[in-house]
Protein backbone atom coordinates (compact mmCIF):
# COMPACT_ATOMS: atom_id res chain seq x y z
CA UNK A 1 0.00 0.00 0.00
CA UNK A 2 2.56 2.48 1.19
CA UNK A 3 4.96 1.68 -1.59
CA UNK A 4 2.29 1.99 -4.25
CA UNK A 5 1.30 5.38 -2.89
CA UNK A 6 4.89 6.50 -2.86
CA UNK A 7 5.20 5.24 -6.38
CA UNK A 8 2.15 7.22 -7.42
CA UNK A 9 3.54 10.30 -5.75
CA UNK A 10 6.87 9.88 -7.48
CA UNK A 11 5.06 9.41 -10.72
CA UNK A 12 3.10 12.59 -10.16
CA UNK A 13 6.26 14.51 -9.38
CA UNK A 14 8.01 13.16 -12.42
CA UNK A 15 5.12 14.21 -14.63
CA UNK A 16 5.11 17.66 -13.06
CA UNK A 17 8.79 17.99 -13.75
CA UNK A 18 8.25 17.03 -17.36
CA UNK A 19 5.44 19.57 -17.57
CA UNK A 20 7.67 22.27 -16.13
CA UNK A 21 10.33 21.34 -18.62
CA UNK A 22 7.81 21.65 -21.42
CA UNK A 23 6.67 25.02 -20.04
CA UNK A 24 10.22 26.23 -20.15
CA UNK A 25 10.50 25.23 -23.80
CA UNK A 26 7.14 26.80 -24.61
CA UNK A 27 7.71 30.06 -22.77
CA UNK A 28 9.51 31.96 -25.55
CA UNK A 29 6.71 31.10 -27.93
CA UNK A 30 4.06 32.28 -25.50
CA UNK A 31 5.91 35.57 -25.18
CA UNK A 32 6.30 35.84 -28.94
CA UNK A 33 2.70 34.96 -29.71
CA UNK A 34 1.22 38.48 -29.48
CA UNK A 35 3.78 40.14 -31.70
CA UNK A 36 3.79 37.32 -34.23
CA UNK A 37 0.01 37.33 -34.43
CA UNK A 38 -0.21 41.08 -34.85
CA UNK A 39 2.60 41.28 -37.38
CA UNK A 40 1.12 38.44 -39.39
CA UNK A 41 -2.54 39.43 -39.35
CA UNK A 42 -2.24 43.21 -39.33
CA UNK A 43 0.96 43.74 -41.26
CA UNK A 44 1.89 40.81 -43.47
CA UNK A 45 -1.65 40.05 -44.61
CA UNK A 46 -2.27 43.61 -45.85
CA UNK A 47 1.17 43.68 -47.43
CA UNK A 48 0.73 40.36 -49.18
CA UNK A 49 -2.75 41.54 -50.14
CA UNK A 50 -1.35 44.18 -52.46
CA UNK A 51 1.27 41.80 -53.82
CA UNK A 52 -1.59 39.46 -54.66
CA UNK A 53 -3.48 42.36 -56.16
CA UNK A 54 -0.57 43.14 -58.43
CA UNK A 55 -0.60 39.70 -60.01
CA UNK A 56 -4.35 39.28 -60.09
CA UNK A 57 -5.55 39.67 -63.64
CA UNK A 58 -9.07 39.44 -65.03
CA UNK A 59 -8.54 35.78 -65.74
CA UNK A 60 -6.39 34.33 -62.97
CA UNK A 61 -2.93 35.23 -61.84
CA UNK A 62 -0.47 36.76 -64.26
CA UNK A 63 2.60 38.88 -64.28
CA UNK A 64 1.13 41.06 -66.99
CA UNK A 65 1.14 44.20 -64.84
CA UNK A 66 4.86 43.82 -64.25
CA UNK A 67 5.46 43.32 -67.95
CA UNK A 68 3.52 46.53 -68.58
CA UNK A 69 5.45 48.38 -65.90
CA UNK A 70 8.85 47.43 -67.20
CA UNK A 71 8.03 48.14 -70.83
CA UNK A 72 6.28 51.44 -70.24
CA UNK A 73 8.75 54.27 -70.74
CA UNK A 74 6.82 56.62 -68.42
CA UNK A 75 7.00 54.18 -65.51
CA UNK A 76 10.63 53.41 -66.16
CA UNK A 77 11.39 57.12 -66.20
CA UNK A 78 9.63 57.52 -62.86
CA UNK A 79 11.60 54.63 -61.38
CA UNK A 80 14.86 55.98 -62.77
CA UNK A 81 14.10 59.48 -61.51
CA UNK A 82 13.27 58.10 -58.06
CA UNK A 83 16.59 56.29 -57.85
CA UNK A 84 18.44 59.36 -59.15
CA UNK A 85 16.74 61.86 -56.83
CA UNK A 86 17.43 59.59 -53.87
CA UNK A 87 21.09 59.55 -54.87
CA UNK A 88 21.28 63.33 -55.17
CA UNK A 89 19.56 63.83 -51.83
CA UNK A 90 21.82 61.26 -50.18
CA UNK A 91 24.97 62.90 -51.51
CA UNK A 92 23.64 66.32 -50.52
CA UNK A 93 23.03 65.10 -46.99
CA UNK A 94 26.48 63.54 -46.82
CA UNK A 95 28.29 66.67 -48.02
CA UNK A 96 26.33 68.98 -45.72
CA UNK A 97 26.19 66.57 -42.80
CA UNK A 98 29.84 65.58 -42.62
CA UNK A 99 31.28 68.90 -41.38
CA UNK A 100 28.52 69.21 -38.79
CA UNK A 101 29.09 65.72 -37.42
CA UNK A 102 32.86 66.25 -37.55
CA UNK A 103 32.75 69.44 -35.55
CA UNK A 104 30.19 68.00 -33.12
CA UNK A 105 32.42 64.99 -32.52
CA UNK A 106 35.72 66.84 -32.25
CA UNK A 107 34.66 69.94 -30.34
CA UNK A 108 32.55 68.41 -27.60
CA UNK A 109 31.02 71.06 -25.39
CA UNK A 110 30.34 74.59 -26.63
CA UNK A 111 29.95 74.62 -30.39
CA UNK A 112 29.72 70.83 -30.69
CA UNK A 113 26.89 70.64 -28.17
CA UNK A 114 25.06 73.52 -29.80
CA UNK A 115 25.27 71.81 -33.21
CA UNK A 116 23.97 68.57 -31.81
CA UNK A 117 21.15 70.38 -30.10
CA UNK A 118 20.07 72.04 -33.36
CA UNK A 119 20.27 68.77 -35.27
CA UNK A 120 18.32 66.91 -32.61
CA UNK A 121 15.63 69.58 -32.50
CA UNK A 122 15.27 69.39 -36.24
CA UNK A 123 15.16 65.58 -36.06
CA UNK A 124 12.23 65.67 -33.67
CA UNK A 125 10.28 68.46 -35.31
CA UNK A 126 7.33 67.39 -37.43
CA UNK A 127 8.58 67.06 -40.99
CA UNK A 128 5.36 68.60 -42.24
CA UNK A 129 6.27 71.73 -40.34
CA UNK A 130 9.70 71.68 -41.98
CA UNK A 131 8.19 71.09 -45.41
CA UNK A 132 5.87 74.00 -44.84
CA UNK A 133 8.84 76.16 -43.90
CA UNK A 134 10.33 75.57 -47.33
CA UNK A 135 7.09 76.58 -49.00
CA UNK A 136 7.38 79.86 -47.15
CA UNK A 137 10.98 80.30 -48.18
CA UNK A 138 10.70 79.25 -51.81
CA UNK A 139 7.16 80.34 -52.69
CA UNK A 140 6.41 83.09 -55.18
CA UNK A 141 5.59 85.42 -52.26
CA UNK A 142 8.25 83.88 -50.08
CA UNK A 143 11.56 84.92 -48.64
CA UNK A 144 13.81 84.14 -51.59
CA UNK A 145 11.52 85.66 -54.20
CA UNK A 146 10.90 88.83 -52.21
CA UNK A 147 14.61 89.11 -51.56
CA UNK A 148 15.27 88.81 -55.30
CA UNK A 149 12.64 91.44 -56.07
CA UNK A 150 14.19 93.75 -53.50
CA UNK A 151 17.46 93.32 -55.35
CA UNK A 152 15.70 94.26 -58.53
CA UNK A 153 15.15 91.15 -60.62
CA UNK A 154 12.23 88.85 -61.21
CA UNK A 155 12.80 85.53 -59.38
CA UNK A 156 12.45 82.25 -61.24
CA UNK A 157 9.88 79.68 -60.19
CA UNK A 158 11.47 77.48 -57.50
CA UNK A 159 8.54 76.12 -55.52
CA UNK A 160 6.80 73.22 -57.24
CA UNK A 161 9.95 72.14 -59.03
CA UNK A 162 12.24 69.19 -58.53
CA UNK A 163 14.81 71.54 -57.03
CA UNK A 164 12.47 72.60 -54.23
CA UNK A 165 11.62 68.97 -53.50
CA UNK A 166 15.30 68.09 -53.34
CA UNK A 167 16.13 70.97 -51.01
CA UNK A 168 13.23 70.04 -48.75
CA UNK A 169 14.21 66.38 -48.62
CA UNK A 170 17.84 67.21 -47.90
CA UNK A 171 16.74 69.50 -45.08
CA UNK A 172 14.48 66.84 -43.62
CA UNK A 173 16.89 63.91 -43.91
CA UNK A 174 20.03 65.82 -42.91
CA UNK A 175 19.57 65.08 -39.18
CA UNK A 176 19.49 61.32 -39.92
CA UNK A 177 22.81 61.62 -41.69
CA UNK A 178 24.43 63.78 -39.03
CA UNK A 179 23.33 61.52 -36.19
CA UNK A 180 24.50 58.39 -38.03
CA UNK A 181 27.89 59.98 -38.73
CA UNK A 182 28.19 61.34 -35.22
CA UNK A 183 27.46 57.95 -33.64
CA UNK A 184 30.51 56.50 -35.39
CA UNK A 185 32.80 59.55 -35.16
CA UNK A 186 32.21 59.88 -31.44
CA UNK A 187 33.72 56.45 -30.91
CA UNK A 188 36.90 57.21 -32.85
CA UNK A 189 39.76 57.04 -30.37
CA UNK A 190 41.25 60.52 -29.88
CA UNK A 191 44.65 59.06 -29.07
CA UNK A 192 44.86 57.74 -32.63
CA UNK A 193 44.64 61.29 -33.94
CA UNK A 194 47.24 62.46 -31.46
CA UNK A 195 49.46 59.51 -32.36
CA UNK A 196 49.22 60.44 -36.03
CA UNK A 197 50.15 64.04 -35.34
CA UNK A 198 52.93 62.84 -33.09
CA UNK A 199 54.28 60.83 -36.02
CA UNK A 200 54.59 64.01 -38.02
CA UNK A 201 51.34 64.18 -39.96
CA UNK A 202 49.73 67.56 -40.52
CA UNK A 203 46.16 68.08 -39.37
CA UNK A 204 44.88 67.59 -42.89
CA UNK A 205 46.93 64.42 -43.36
CA UNK A 206 45.65 63.12 -40.04
CA UNK A 207 42.11 63.84 -41.13
CA UNK A 208 42.49 62.22 -44.53
CA UNK A 209 44.55 59.17 -43.52
CA UNK A 210 43.12 58.41 -40.06
CA UNK A 211 39.82 60.14 -39.28
CA UNK A 212 38.16 59.88 -42.67
CA UNK A 213 38.73 56.12 -43.11
CA UNK A 214 37.54 55.47 -39.57
CA UNK A 215 34.34 57.42 -40.22
CA UNK A 216 33.42 55.35 -43.29
CA UNK A 217 31.04 53.05 -41.38
CA UNK A 218 29.07 56.12 -40.33
CA UNK A 219 28.91 57.34 -43.92
CA UNK A 220 27.65 53.94 -45.07
CA UNK A 221 25.01 53.80 -42.34
CA UNK A 222 23.87 57.35 -42.96
CA UNK A 223 23.73 56.96 -46.73
CA UNK A 224 21.87 53.66 -46.51
CA UNK A 225 19.27 55.13 -44.18
CA UNK A 226 18.78 58.35 -46.13
CA UNK A 227 18.65 56.58 -49.49
CA UNK A 228 16.04 54.09 -48.30
CA UNK A 229 13.81 56.71 -46.70
CA UNK A 230 14.16 58.89 -49.77
CA UNK A 231 12.99 56.14 -52.14
CA UNK A 232 9.62 55.96 -50.41
CA UNK A 233 9.29 59.68 -49.61
CA UNK A 234 5.81 60.91 -50.40
CA UNK A 235 4.82 64.03 -48.50
CA UNK A 236 7.65 66.45 -49.20
CA UNK A 237 7.96 65.86 -52.97
CA UNK A 238 4.18 65.96 -53.19
CA UNK A 239 4.02 69.37 -51.52
CA UNK A 240 7.18 70.99 -52.88
CA UNK A 241 7.71 69.21 -56.19
CA UNK A 242 6.30 70.00 -59.59
CA UNK A 243 3.75 68.02 -61.52
CA UNK A 244 6.31 66.85 -64.06
CA UNK A 245 8.85 65.49 -61.61
CA UNK A 246 6.88 62.44 -60.56
CA UNK A 247 8.50 60.03 -58.13
CA UNK A 248 7.27 56.50 -57.54
CA UNK A 249 5.78 57.22 -54.11
CA UNK A 250 3.78 60.13 -55.53
CA UNK A 251 2.55 57.90 -58.31
CA UNK A 252 1.27 55.40 -55.79
CA UNK A 253 -0.29 58.18 -53.73
CA UNK A 254 -2.14 59.71 -56.62
CA UNK A 255 -3.44 56.30 -57.65
CA UNK A 256 -4.94 55.89 -54.18
CA UNK A 257 -6.40 59.39 -54.12
CA UNK A 258 -7.96 59.17 -57.51
CA UNK A 259 -8.98 55.53 -57.11
CA UNK A 260 -7.63 54.81 -60.53
CA UNK A 261 -5.88 51.59 -61.32
CA UNK A 262 -5.49 49.33 -58.30
CA UNK A 263 -3.31 46.86 -60.06
CA UNK A 264 -0.96 49.52 -61.31
CA UNK A 265 -0.64 51.04 -57.84
CA UNK A 266 -0.01 47.62 -56.32
CA UNK A 267 2.59 46.85 -58.99
CA UNK A 268 4.44 50.09 -58.33
CA UNK A 269 4.32 49.44 -54.59
CA UNK A 270 5.72 45.97 -55.17
CA UNK A 271 8.56 47.37 -57.29
CA UNK A 272 9.36 50.01 -54.65
CA UNK A 273 9.28 47.35 -51.95
CA UNK A 274 11.56 45.08 -53.98
CA UNK A 275 14.11 47.85 -54.58
CA UNK A 276 14.10 48.73 -50.88
CA UNK A 277 14.51 45.14 -49.78
CA UNK A 278 17.34 44.60 -52.25
CA UNK A 279 19.22 47.52 -50.66
CA UNK A 280 18.60 46.06 -47.22
CA UNK A 281 19.81 42.66 -48.42
CA UNK A 282 23.00 44.14 -49.86
CA UNK A 283 23.63 46.02 -46.64
CA UNK A 284 22.94 42.90 -44.61
CA UNK A 285 25.32 40.87 -46.76
CA UNK A 286 28.22 43.25 -46.26
CA UNK A 287 27.68 44.67 -42.80
CA UNK A 288 24.77 42.91 -41.07
CA UNK A 289 21.49 44.68 -40.46
CA UNK A 290 22.04 44.82 -36.71
CA UNK A 291 24.59 47.55 -37.21
CA UNK A 292 22.10 49.73 -39.03
CA UNK A 293 19.47 49.32 -36.34
CA UNK A 294 21.84 49.88 -33.49
CA UNK A 295 22.12 53.51 -34.48
Amino acid sequence: MATSRMYAEDNFKASRQIWRGAMRAARPWILLLPVLTVITVLFLVPLLGILRLSILGEDGYSLASYATFFTDSFHLAVLGRTLGVALIVTLGCLILGYPVAYVAARYAGGLGTALLLIVTMSFWTSFLARTYAWMVILGSQGLVSNLARALGFEPPQILFTGLAANIGMIHILLPFMVLALFAVMQRIDRTLLRASEGLGATRFQTFRRVFLPLSVPGMINGCAMVYIVCLGFYVTPELLGGPRDQLIARQIGSQIEQLLDWREAATMAAVLLAVTLVIYAVYDFFFGLDRLWRS
Binding site: P46, G232, A249, A269, L273, T276
Partner: peptide, 8 residues
Protein backbone atom coordinates in the same frame (compact mmCIF):
# COMPACT_ATOMS: atom_id res chain seq x y z
CA UNK B 1 8.24 52.12 -47.14
CA UNK B 2 5.28 53.82 -45.48
CA UNK B 3 3.70 54.66 -48.83
CA UNK B 4 3.54 50.93 -49.57
CA UNK B 5 1.86 50.32 -46.22
CA UNK B 6 -0.50 53.22 -46.90
CA UNK B 7 -1.70 51.44 -50.02
CA UNK B 8 -1.78 48.09 -48.22
Amino acid sequence: PFIVMALA
